[in-house]
């Protein structure tokens, strides 16, 4: 019985995965062996039949049915922009006349303020310099009162007492304890910064290995 080509080699020949030398050997055998030639043509027919099978499509509406189960998470900024676009689309005028009215209404406060300033300055007993001195004096006084109120409120608050306690405790500690406390504090800061960075900037980069995809 002649040494026929194995099915493996015939398949590799059709798949064109044989190297040049092997391919030449197979071809020269095929040229003289009707049995292997027949096997090859059978195999080719099978390959062609399989490759002619069509891809099948799911029924209409498949995409919408899938999308109903998909959570599309859009960034906050994009959602805010979309909301603004939608809102502007609703409130913005759609005609030239509408825009004219909207512009007039928007300009009214400016016109009113301008008219008031013009009227005040047109009075004989009032000058621009006097108004500036009056306004800046009142502003400085209001800021000073606000600062004083803030300091007084802080001095009487629980936070001030707590900070004072911390300062007294730190004063009573030796160098070693202070160093240890500083090291713990620094470590906590570093960990906090890393956690923030990991959650804010690296969330999309978290991946699992392809080999372990499972649900």
């Amino acid at each position: 019985m002649p040494n026929h080509l194995t099915p493996d080699r015939l398949e590799a020949y059709i798949e064109q995965t044989l190297d040049g030398g092997e391919r030449a050997v197979v071809e020269s055998h095929l040229a003289t062996c009707a049995h292997c030639e027949g096997e090859l043509s059978d195999l080719r027919a099978l390959f062609e039949a399989l490759e002619s099978l069509p891809e099948l499509a799911p029924s209409a509406g498949f995409t919408d049915r899938v999308m109903q189960g998909v959570r599309v998470r859009r960034p906050l900024l994009e959602r805010v922009n979309e909301w603004l676009d939608e809102w502007l689309g609703r409130v913005a005028p759609s005609t030239n006349r509408g825009w004219a009215i909207a512009t007039t209404v928007a300009a009214m406060p400016v016109l009113v303020v301008a008219a008031t300033v013009w009227w005040v300055l047109s009075q004989p007993a009032v000058s621009a310099q006097e108004i500036w001195v009056f306004a800046s004096g009142r502003t400085a006084m209001t800021l000073a009162m606000g600062w004083e109120w803030t300091l007084t409120s802080f001095a009487g608050s629980g936070l001030a007492a707590w900070l004072t306690g911390i300062a007294q405790l730190a004063g009573s500690l030796g160098r070693a304890e202070l160093g240890l406390a500083a090291a713990v504090f620094a470590t906590m800061m570093v960990v906090s910064v890393y956690v923030l960075y990991d959650n804010l900037f690296r969330s999309n980069a978290r991946r699992i290995e392809h080999a372990s995809y499972s649900f």
Partner: peptide, 11 residues
Amino acid sequence: IKVLNALDRYN
């Protein structure tokens, strides 16, 4: 649905 909901984990 599984694949599209897990795109963040796609390498």
